[in-house]
Every structure is written in C-alpha cells, then in structure tokens.
Nucleic acid binder design. Structure first.
Lengths: 154, 154
DNA sequence: GGTGAAATCTTTCCAAT
DNA sequence: ATTGGAAAGATTTCACC
C-alpha cells in the first residue's frame, strides 16, 4: 500500500469505469502495471467490490434518519434482526447510553415510523430515538489519504 | 424506472464489473438493451457514478464515530467547513437538539480527538457529542426495492 | 424500446527484463 | 514489479423490427 496504490484508489473511487490505460496515465504507470496493482488490491480485499452509487431520491427514499436504539439486553447477536429490515442501511454497536445506532432511508416519514415499529419488535429493544436529516451537506467515501492529515502535522 | 431498471441497479450494486451480456441475462434482456437502459440511468443521474468500495481498515481508518454537533448559530451555510475536514465522510443538518450530524473515520481515537478539535474550530459550533462504534453489523447501499416493503402491504 | 451483428476499444495474459 | 504486444472478450453503434 504505497502512494501509487492510494492514487489508484482515489481514481477508482471517482470513476471505476475508466480504462487501465487512463488509470496508468493518471498514476504514471503502464496499463499492464496498473492492471496488476488493481488486481492485487482486489485480491487482498482492499477493494471489496466495484459498485454503482444510486441516487436515493430516485428510488423513493428521500427521508434519511439516524436512530439510536436502546436495549435492556446484550444486542451483540442481533445483527441479522436489523439486516432483515431493508430500509436499514447501516447498523453499529455503539459505546454510550444507547446500544445500537442505525441509519435508515425511507420514502416518507410514515414509512420511517413503520421502520421504528419493526425495530421495536426486535428482541431486547426497549426504546428508539430517531433524528431526521433535514439536508445532507455531503456523503463521500473514505479517503485513501486518511492518516496524512492527522496531527501532529509535519 | 420500472422493475427491470431496479433489477439492473441491484445487479450493478452487487458487481459493476459484469458484462452487459451477463447483466442482460440476469434481467431477461439482450446485451444491447441492457446497455441502453444503463446508459439512460446514468444520463438521468439515477446512477451517479461507478465506484469501488474500499476497506476502511486497510486505509488506516478503523475507528468509526458519529458526532452530534451543537451550535449557537444557523449552520446552514457551513457545509464547506465540514467538507474541509477529510476524515468527515458525511455531514447532515438535523432536526432535534443538535444542529449537525457527522460521520467520521480515523485511524486512532487520538486522531478522532483531533477531528473534534477541528470541528470545534468551525464558526458557530458550541459543542460536540461523539459516539464511537464498537462493532459494525453491516453497511450496505440503498435498496432499489425500497418502497416495496413499507406498510400498508398489498 | 428491443434485437442481432459489425467495428472499435479494453481487458487479460505472457514472455522478457 | 513493470513493460509491450497478442489474443480474447466487452463496449458501442447501427440498421431493422
């Protein structure tokens, strides 16, 4: 994972449809060498998959909310219960007053309410606190240059 | 946006490297027709871009946190200030007691602390409440079948 | 809007360094 | 690990439906 690999990841995050010739050009390598490096990044699961970024509003999922889920019991084995609710895009065990944090997208606030009802039905859940996003400033992938920014700075 | 378009989006979310022949096969269309539909989905910005999903831990960003940002003033024009912090992956204006919710990835909790310091330096910010994720159950893209699930069901 | 086929460009493989 | 080139395969266009 040198600086060339990171440059390749930046390029691919921006546009994974570009040719290996263009990719090589962008990082100062031949098409074959760029291909070989990307192949290894995939093999090592640094690149997990190539995918498309779909506009949620075009799919009728314009309402975004984060939900703090409180529980009376240990929730560490409840991953599948949350995954069974398709409107939930992320679920994390958290440190703090709540137990689980989930990210939800729905078409309407009525549907959000229905998702909260289904979360409530999960074993051990004792409460929810939903926070609705009014406007999204941005959503972007993790930067391959993370770690170059943190203090102490050079 | 009929059911074939949604099936194409599901396929592309899973693997955007597959050929139009394979894509057409999966949805019951010729390669040419699949290509034309995908071209239109891109033109209409339903597909915003083709990208790679990179493992955050491989990039040295294994610490995930959500931060509620409190403010004394209107934060509606502060998008660029949050975007200037590269460790911030999402920033949303929210309804509720806080003003802005941000998603952060860093290598260490020390670096997280440094990000909080930089958030604090943004004009109008009066406080932060960070929630660290201990374990991620899953992170997945928005389902093209969203809306097929909500009650009232058929 | 869909099909099948032709032309062009890319990916993929490999021998050499 | 990288290069250049050759073979295999994919994308893109187009005439026709």
């Amino acid at each position: 994972m040198d600086h060339i690999d990171r440059a390749l990841l930046v390029q691919l995050q921006q546009d994974a449809t570009q040719s290996y010739a263009a990719l090589g050009e962008a990082v100062g390598l031949s098409a074959g060498a760029a291909h070989e490096r990307v192949r290894k990044l995939r093999a090592r699961d640094v690149i997990r998959r190539t995918t498309v970024d779909v506009d949620p509003t075009a799919l009728g999922a314009g309402v975004l909310a984060y939900v703090m889920v409180d529980s009376a019991a240990w929730m560490g084995d409840s991953g599948a219960d949350f995954a069974a609710i398709p409107e939930i895009l992320e679920a994390h065990i958290i440190a703090g007053s709540a137990s689980v944090l989930v990210k939800v997208r729905t078409a309407t606030t009525e549907q959000l309410q229905d998702v909260l009802r289904r979360i409530y039905a999960i074993d051990g859940v004792s409460g929810t606190q939903a926070t609705v996003a009014l406007e999204t400033f941005f959503e972007r992938p993790v930067s391959p240059h993370a770690g170059d920014f943190s203090s102490p700075r050079p």
